[in-house]
Amino acid sequence: MKVFVDQDLCISCGLCIDTCPSVFDWNDDGKAHAIVDEVPADAEDDAREALESCPSEAIKEE
């Protein structure tokens, strides 16, 4: 599973980082971004929850 954060849609709410800190973190622009190329198997459920919970639908699965 691969995910990315659409920087144009991200509203910097931090929900994804709270939900799945092993995959998402803040970038230098104060927006969330994926910090891994491939989501580790043990983090896939949390990453999917972050994707589905994103209020601006900024998280996309590749």
Rank of each mutant, 00 (worst) to 15 (best):
F4D: 08
L15A: 13
M1P: 14
D8Q: 10
I59V: 07
D25G: 04
D28Q: 13
E49F: 11
E62I: 03
C16Y: 06
E49K: 11
A32E: 01
E62W: 05
P21R: 00
E49H: 13
P40M: 02
E49W: 12
D45P: 13
D8C: 04
F24V: 01
S22T: 09
D42R: 08
E49Q: 15
P21W: 00
W26H: 06
G30C: 01
S22R: 09
R48H: 10
P40E: 02
K60N: 12
D28A: 15
A58Q: 03
S22V: 09
D28R: 15
P21Y: 00
D6T: 05
E49M: 12
D6S: 07
S56Y: 05
D37F: 04
D8R: 07
N27T: 08
W26Q: 04
V23Y: 00
L9P: 04
T19S: 15
H33Q: 14
W26S: 04
S22Q: 11
D28I: 13
P21H: 01
E61R: 11
L51E: 04
L51F: 08
I35S: 05
F4K: 11
D28G: 14
V23T: 01
I17S: 01
C54R: 04
I35V: 12
C16F: 08
L51C: 09
K2V: 14
G14Q: 03
W26L: 07
I11P: 05
P55F: 01
M1D: 15
D46V: 10
K60P: 09
P55N: 01
D8L: 08
Q7E: 13
E57N: 15
C54F: 07
F4C: 09
A58V: 04
